[in-house]
Design a protein around this nucleic acid. Structure first.
Lengths: 108, 108
DNA sequence: AGCGGTACTCGGTATCACGTAGTACTGGTT
DNA sequence: AACCAGTACTACGTGATACCGAGTACCGCT
């Protein structure tokens, strides 16, 4: 699949929120998860900028823990604000994707 | 619906391509069409920047015609490159939206 | 003459994903 | 002990995009 970067703008952050929401996890693992989900070209740098943004916006709780196989990991989990933001994201996604699908079906 | 701008990045241009592909039309009408499709906050300035970009990328054919109710209109239609780009857009959309929907369903 | 609706242009801004380079910790190999 | 690959995070800059605001211009109607 060719370049998806523009189409992922505004949705990738939501995907990261969803992943964090489903289980407490850390940046490196999130990148792997996105890759196996089909977003093969998403690289670590991108995920870390998103994580820093989420932290700056106060949507996540961060806990640092030693890893055993490398430097310590920063584990992320959603707080209340994060769960609200995630819900908002899915509402918006539902809205936008349904309109676009309608347009695709020649929606008059 | 609150702010959708980030989520529309990368998709709005495809929507405009689709609208032009279904009938020869012009900027002002495209804006109205998007608005009635549910993208209520998309304004003329945005559509015109997209149209200029499409023209610069050689994806559309442009014909200026008098309007009778105002200044002359620039009518846009897709050329071969535009139709190819539109097909690529829908392929990408199908790819991305299906992965995101899968993630939403707790895709393991 | 003025006004509202139509129609397009242009310059600047914010946000976002991405590229690249760098730092740092660990365990295993030589 | 020295090196390296894999893990894990940080920081700075770039390009693309949607949006905002102001401006220009044309038309019919009052």
């Amino acid at each position: 699949m060719d370049d998806l970067t523009e189409m992922l703008k505004g949705t990738l952050e939501g995907c990261v929120l969803e992943i964090i929401g489903s289980e407490e996890t850390y940046g490196y693992a999130i990148t792997r998860r996105l890759n196996e989900l089909g977003f093969t070209d998403v690289v670590e740098g991108t995920v870390y900028t998103i994580l820093l943004r989420l932290e700056r916006h106060g949507l996540v709780q961060v806990t640092k823990r030693p890893s055993g196989v490398g430097p310590p990991r920063k584990f992320y989990s959603l707080n209340d604000a994060g769960r609200e933001e995630l819900a908002r994201f899915w509402t918006k996604w539902q809205y936008v994707s349904s309109r676009i699908d309608k347009l695709k079906e020649g929606g008059r």
